[in-house]
C-alpha cells in the first residue's frame, strides 16, 4: 500500500501534474462524456436528432414494464451460467501447460494460444456463423458424417423436441429452441487465450517449495490441482469472473452477428445490449435506449459489488 505523503510534498513539483492532463482529457472526452450524455438523454424522448423532449422518468417506467427487456435479462442469465461452465477448460488448460516439464514446450503452447488472438473478433464470429450454416456448415457435416445426427433425431422423437428432423438439415440459428444451445456451443472448446494466460500467471507465482512439500506428502496430480493450484489461483478466477459477468451482460456482438438485430427467431437470443441497440438504431428510440443502458449499468455495478463483497479469496 502506498504511504501517505504531506500536502507540501505533493504540491512541491505541481507542474508535473500537467503531464496527466492529456490523459484525463481523453478519458473525459471519450469515456465520461458519452456516459454523461447517456444519463442526460435517458430523461428525454429523443430520436437522435436535434429535437428532444424532457419526459422525466418515463423511459425508466416504460423499461420496468418492457417484457422484451426482462426476458432478455433471463437470456443473459443463462449465458452467464454457460460462460461459467466455459471457464473450466481454460483453467484445466492453464494447469496442463503449467505442469509441462519443458520450458520450451510451455513457451510453445503459450505462443500457440496467443496466435489466434491476432484474428479480429468479428472474423471469428463470421467463421462461427458459417460453422452453424445448415447446408454447408462444418457442424452439420460432422454430425452427418459421424452419424450423430441420427442419434439426435431418435432423441428428438423420444423426447418430442421437434427440432431435429431426418430429412432436413439442422437449423441451428433458425429454430428458437436451438438458439441457446448454439450460443453454448459457440467458442468450443472454450479455451480463451486471455483466461489461460491470466490463470497461468497465477500458477507460475506458486512457489516450487509448495509442490515439493506436497510430493513429500504423497499428493497425487488431481489432489495437487484441488488443494494447491485451484485455491492459489482464486484471485485470478475472481478477476475472470468479474470480467466475464461484465462482458456477458454488456456484450451483444455475438448475437447481432449470428442472429441479427431481432435476436433471431422467437427473439430467443435477445440480450439487454442487443435490445438497447435495436431500440436505438432500428426503432430510433435513442432516449429509451439510453435508459436501457442505465439499467444495464446498474445491474453490472450491482453484480460486480456483490462479487467483490462475497466472492472472497482466503489464502
Amino acid at each position: 500500500m502506498a504511504l501517505p505523503i504531506s500536502r507540501h510534498k505533493a504540491l512541491r513539483e505541481w507542474k508535473l501534474y500537467f503531464f496527466i492532463l492529456p490523459s484525463l482529457l481523453f478519458i473525459g472526452v471519450f469515456s465520461y462524456f458519452p456516459a454523461g450524455s447517456a444519463i442526460y438523454h435517458s430523461f428525454f424522448d429523443w430520436q437522435g436528432g436535434d429535437n428532444k423532449q424532457l419526459i422525466g422518468f418515463e423511459n425508466f417506467s416504460r423499461a420496468l414494464h418492457d417484457p422484451v427487456l426482462w426476458s432478455s435479462f433471463g437470456t443473459v442469465s443463462v449465458l452467464i451460467v454457460f460462460n461459467l461452465i466455459k471457464m473450466i477448460p481454460a483453467i484445466l488448460m492453464a494447469v496442463l501447460i503449467h505442469r509441462l516439464k519443458s520450458d520450451r514446450a510451455q513457451y510453445g503452447y503459450r505462443v500457440l494460444l496467443v496466435v489466434p488472438m491476432i484474428v479480429p473478433g468479428l472474423v471469428t464470429l463470421f467463421i462461427w456463423k458459417f460453422f452453424f450454416d445448415p447446408n454447408l456448415g462444418v457442424l452439420n457435416n460432422v454430425l452427418d458424417f459421424t452419424g450423430l445426427k441420427t442419434v439426435l433425431v431418435h432423441l428428438d422423437q423420444f423426447f418430442g423436441w421437434d427440432v431435429f428432423f431426418a430429412n432436413a438439415p439442422i437449423g441451428w440459428l433458425s429454430q428458437p429452441a436451438l438458439i441457446l444451445p448454439s450460443l453454448f456451443l459457440w467458442g468450443f472448446p472454450w479455451i480463451g487465450a486471455v483466461g489461460v494466460l491470466i490463470y497461468l500467471a497465477g500458477l507460475q507465482s506458486i512457489g516450487q517449495e509448495v509442490y515439493e512439500a506436497a510430493e513429500l506428502d504423497g499428493v497425487g496430480p488431481f489432489q495437487k490441482f484441488l488443494y494447491i493450484e485451484l485455491p492459489l489461483i482464486l484471485t485470478q478466477v475472481r478477476l475472470s469472473l468479474v470480467l466475464l459477468i461484465i462482458g456477458t451482460l454488456k456484450d451483444y456482438g455475438l448475437q447481432l452477428v449470428l442472429l441479427g438485430d431481432t435476436g433471431g427467431p422467437g427473439g430467443r437470443g435477445m440480450v439487454p445490449g442487443l435490445w438497447m441497440y435495436n431500440r436505438a438504431f432500428i426503432a430510433g428510440e435513442f432516449g429509451y435506449a439510453c435508459a436501457i443502458g442505465m439499467i444495464l449499468f446498474v445491474f453490472i455495478l450491482g453484480l460486480t459489488y456483490l462479487n467483490n463483497k462475497y466472492v472472497r479469496v482466503d489464502k
Binding site: 458459417f130 450454416d133 445448415p134 447446408n135 454447408l136 438439415p169 439442422i170 437449423g171 441451428w172 433458425s174
Partner: peptide, 21 residues
C-alpha cells in the same frame, strides 16, 4: 428455399448460387 434460410445472409445466398448449389 434452402432449409434454415432465415439464418443466412446475402453473401451466403449469393455463394450458394454461384457455387451452383
Amino acid at each position: 428455399m434452402p432449409p434454415g434460410f432465415s439464418q443466412l445472409e446475402r453473401d451466403d445466398a449469393l455463394f450458394a448460387y454461384l457455387q451452383q448449389q
